[in-house]
Design a binder for these strands. Sequence first.
DNA 1: CTGAAAGCGCTAACAA
DNA 2: TTGTTAGCGCTTTCAG
Lengths: 352, 352
Amino acid sequence: MADPEGTERTTIQDVAAAAGVSVSAVSKVLRGAYGVSPQMRTRVTAAIDRLGYRPHTGARAMRGRTYTVGVVLVELTSPFQTEVAKGISDALEDTSYQDILVTAGATPERQKSRIEALLDRHVDGLVLIAPWIEVAWIEKIAQALPVVAVALHGTPRNFDTVVDDERLGAQLMVDHLVAAGHRQIAHTSAPRAAFEDTFVLSHTARRQGYEQAMRSHGLRPDVIETWLSEEGGHQAAQQAFDRARPPTAIFAGADIAAFGVLRAAEERGLRVPEDVSVAGYDNIYTSTINRVSLTTVDQSGHGTGAESIRLLLERIEGRAQPRQFVVSPHLVTRRTTTAPSGTGISNRGRTV
Amino acid sequence: MADPEGTERTTIQDVAAAAGVSVSAVSKVLRGAYGVSPQMRTRVTAAIDRLGYRPHTGARAMRGRTYTVGVVLVELTSPFQTEVAKGISDALEDTSYQDILVTAGATPERQKSRIEALLDRHVDGLVLIAPWIEVAWIEKIAQALPVVAVALHGTPRNFDTVVDDERLGAQLMVDHLVAAGHRQIAHTSAPRAAFEDTFVLSHTARRQGYEQAMRSHGLRPDVIETWLSEEGGHQAAQQAFDRARPPTAIFAGADIAAFGVLRAAEERGLRVPEDVSVAGYDNIYTSTINRVSLTTVDQSGHGTGAESIRLLLERIEGRAQPRQFVVSPHLVTRRTTTAPSGTGISNRGRTV
DNA sequence: CTGAAAGCGCTAACAA
DNA sequence: TTGTTAGCGCTTTCAG
């Protein structure tokens, strides 16, 4: 009656007994540690296979590693973040580590508590995707375990970062629109988070890139600050269209916001791209389908995830100096942008 | 020098010392167990807060619960699955449990190994979203811990299920198309998985619903078996359009496949819905945007997730009889379906 | 109602 | 190269 369910786990003891060796020998084989003879390894491995033994992560966590990487993302509905997460999973595929994901929402409190939950589980390392937290807090936990942050621009002391060069990406888009003949190009963005000073998040980096690129073309930046959501894009576009001289192109800070812009345009009876050009940033799946064909900027989420794991594993192996990796964005021109028309809403004002 | 990093964790011992009580007292307060006086509770709680103590999940796992629910999904890029996962997270919000996610891919081997990794972490329960595994295997692990499967149709012995009534959903769509005047309605589906006999997955349930509904209208079912992906939908549509008498409507087994159908139609110069009606199933985000406006069937992923947690917590509390919960789908008619035209590809053949 | 102590399955010093 | 053993931080009997 000791085991009514018949599901007692095989332990390292069982393996040791079955192989006729000590538990520490098994432990060493398990971890690939030094000081095991080939025949010992074979015997133990055989016993492990025969018994179908798998180590208890919790027990391991008490002394050593859990061989687990914690991944924190804001939400599952963000295509870019999930692509990064996929890149992480794939990169971990042929290592001895596994990833567990956790969604945290966009509030610092929830994010911190979810990260703490991961610390409670003694993960060996952490990848934070677009963390919405004061950097000082991240620095603190990064003193205790390896951390890589994705989409956080800045130069941290205790952790690594992987970022898309979003300033460049924004510039590519502005250049594209200017080359097509646009001079009134609005940009939709989101409010700067309170903690963004020496560190900035994606939307702020994009905005900075946009502003700089506009100035370099001798144009006046026109930022409409709402939110990088469908609704936010819709509101921003309404504001833009209500102006006396509406922009001939709207460069949304994210594809999702661009969809809101498209909706607003449709509601006003404006044709895209004939009456107004619309562009986004992220190149999410929806943008690729033929009926949408949004001009946008692509940043490889998958590559970003893979790179973050490369850095994280280096840290787990002992590296302490911070590293930053920058991935290059590229422009994807599709069917929502074209030259401004000479009629309708346009940049006619220049002839005055 | 015992703590060079200054990051030694506070343990239950520290809390006990700070509160001037025993560790077992702290443990009881932690777990809300019986036999603690109010003043004991207050003292301990105060000490916990003061020290910022959080229990070590691994240590807990050695004896009791981890207060962790493992969620397994096929991939992050499936909007329905991530919505279920969100429903799960939200439902767990005001419980003492937390969820960790793991992606498993569509092969039984990987799925099993990811589930085992969760078992190694001693999760208290498991939610499997659209598991692609022999049910016998699930039954076995479900003997050892609470399990809920989502989108698996059948009557398990040891675990619960939450499913959308996909047969009904498919019927709603067929009824809609027939009411619009269509009589040649093709359905795209995927091969039946090897393990689907007494249990079936979503695509098979949808197909069954489609076939039954067609027959009930006196129509001949026309299933094109490819894969429920964009590419699969594209191939299926090409096959359909190549027929001597092409269907006037294509009901894809999933929205994502419907996008492939739309692409194939565009390539042939067929207008949707004038020349051919196209419908999907899932009501994913992309389908909702104005430029796409796909007619589809909605199943509440969020509600599904919430319900799965309700059932799982019941099981964790001790229920053993299996339960099944069915959520109701509803039709969402948008702009990709209409009456068949009398010209072009149509159901003209009837006049023969 | 409270506390002492055993032990969960591992890892890592240390001994042999 | 191998084995012995002391914990890791909790939970859970079992005494008091």
